[in-house]
Design a protein around this nucleic acid. Structure first.
Lengths: 336, 336
DNA sequence: ACGCTTGAGGTAAGCGCTTTCCTAGACCGT
DNA sequence: ACGGTCTAGGAAAGCGCTTACCTCAAGCGT
């Protein structure tokens, strides 16, 4: 492993000069030396040690991103936005998958902290459990105390810079759509109950139910894990257990796609399905999926912009509206 | 920013002792000191500086991953496998998106090299252009020369540890399927022509054409960028320009899904479509997509396993078979 | 011709940590 | 009681780099 000292020796200069030439310092250097040093770099295939550099110039540049799971299209879209902004700013992005485990999240915060990242962006639902939320907040504060910047996406329990999609309003839109279409017996396919995203979307749904005088009993709310297969299983159960149901509200598109699959295998039931997030697949399934659109890439872009911006005095919070996108998977309730 | 020295001072011990306690060194330490140091760590919210640690113990642990684009489901699946193995081994994974630009790839190799990663895994098609391939190889060799490990997925131009999906054979399977169904006039929706993946899959298709005595002229091969929208555009053009065509072979599933969308809007044409990769969506589109399955997650797992394994003498190359998965989007050719 | 400025390049002090080696008590045997 | 062996803990030497500061020589004005 060639070091700066090797290069300097090879070129017959001091490490100071070599460093200056390699980093394009403003200090003027004779052309002869410059050429010699650059030749030495090429010959020795010298690559500077990033750790030593970071240490010496105690200057933070990389940014960390913690998401539940990048291979989930929801987070993939957000991550795309995050990366676009960060890369445009010339930053290295370190992506960590928490797999929805708070402990792993905690671990990653410390890891990113240890790696001296300039900022951490956390995307994905927060945790309803106050103890868990507090523990996370504590680590986040410790990171902030050392000058790190933090931005969260969709975690209103964190008081700091945040981009908040309006999940409650989105839930309301979904419910309103179904209820104005005349559906009175609906089932909900929800995500894990310990996530705030689930709770918020559900809350909006219930507000709509109240407004339209519809009862939405607890037993009609099924919980899975926000995956396609989870949605399929739940929808299968709904079809078996609830002959009255004429519409299913899935709390994300993956599960809605699963529900559609379940529906396909039971030709005798015609059940409307609405999703949430409006992921790219929504257009391509059949029937195409009615959904509540969240501008995922934009969410990522805005969060990274906050994180990289100068530290403001008051925490900046940006709210992002949800929007109903009607396609073919919902229709008016038909009397039997 | 609390440092080890702060902790040591706070606890009234030397940095050596503090370090030993914090890292659980094997050297025995009095319980009283241990308690004091741990208390100081908690009170000062001390988080060790990873760069200083790396520097001091010049011991590589993180691994780097370079993919074309994580938010592309193809790479998302591979990445999932990569991460599973790496995380199980307690490694930090740094993911870099090259966006199919060789220069960015070059940059990332050096960046990962600079960050002293233990290994680099590169997934995704290689570049047909020999100059580009050579430049990349050169940087890779430099990294290897310093003791770094490298594993590639699907880049047979690199002579080192590799996991190679058999794209040529997959292309053959796709062609054979279409031709045995009686289709003689087919169009191909291919990816960028400078990628080896495109070239290999095409080569297999042509081998099948030859075997079944079908002509597959150049003008029937359309090139896009492996995205869904690219596939839709191309399929639209095919439908407009080629009234003879009864089947389309898309060289990946994203483009196949786009083709399906194009087909949906022109009800008068019944054209069979075959995809490639068998991504999760393939089941959920209508008609469900016939595809050539590549075990993407497994590809990732095997590559990371190679990368983390001990450096072997001879480069280890693992071949992975492609497999035809027949669904609803292909059918026998019907006489008009 | 002298002192001074200027500018090119080198010296060396860290950045925060790990780890080797060393020191100084504690404890043992005789 | 004394030398010898352990052992817990500290001193300090790096890891590879950046950069503030210093040196030395050339160039300038008067």
């Amino acid at each position: 492993m060639a070091t700066l000292a090797d290069v300097a020796r090879h070129a017959g200069v001091s490490t100071a000069t070599a460093s200056r030439i390699i980093n394009g310092s403003s200090k003027p250097v004779a052309d002869a030396l410059r050429t010699r040093v650059l030749a030495a770099v090429a010959e020795l295939k010298y690559v500077p040690n990033a750790h030593a550099q970071m240490l010496a110039r105690s200057h933070r540049s990389a940014v960390g991103v913690i998401v539940h799971d990048v291979s989930d299209p929801y987070f993939a879209e957000i991550t795309r936005g995050l990366q676009r902004v960060a890369t445009a700013d010339g930053r290295l992005v370190i992506i960590c998958n928490s797999f929805r485990e708070p402990d792993r999240e905690l671990e990653y915060i410390d890891l990113l902290h240890a790696h001296q990242v300039a900022a951490i962006v956390i995307a994905g639902s927060g945790y309803l459990d106050p103890a868990t939320a507090a523990r996370l907040d504590d680590r986040l504060r410790a990171f902030e105390a050392t000058g790190g910047r933090i931005a969260v996406i969709g975690r209103h329990e964190h008081t700091g810079d945040a981009v908040l999609p309006d999940n409650e309003q989105g839930g309301f839109l979904a419910g309103e759509h179904l209820f104005t279409l005349g559906h009175t017996e609906i089932a909900v396919i929800a995500g894990p109950s310990y996530l705030t995203t689930t709770a918020d979307r559900l809350k909006g749904l219930q507000r709509a139910a109240k407004k339209y005088g519809i009862k939405l009993p607890k037993k009609r709310v099924y919980h899975a894990d926000f995956t396609r297969d989870g949605g399929e299983d739940l929808a299968t159960r709904v079809l078996a257990e609830e002959p009255e149901v004429t519409a299913i509200a899935a709390l994300n598109d993956s599960m809605a796609v699963g529900a559609l699959a379940a529906l396909r295998t039971s030709a005798d039931r015609r059940v409307a399905v609405i999703g949430f997030d409006d992921m790219p697949i929504a257009r391509d399934v059949t029937p195409s999926l009615t959904s509540v659109r969240l501008p995922l890439t934009e969410l990522g872009e805005r969060a990274m912009t906050l994180a990289l911006g100068a530290a403001g005095e008051s925490p900046r919070v940006e709210h992002v509206e949800a929007e109903l996108v009607v396609r073919e998977s919902t229709w008016p309730h038909e009397a039997r």
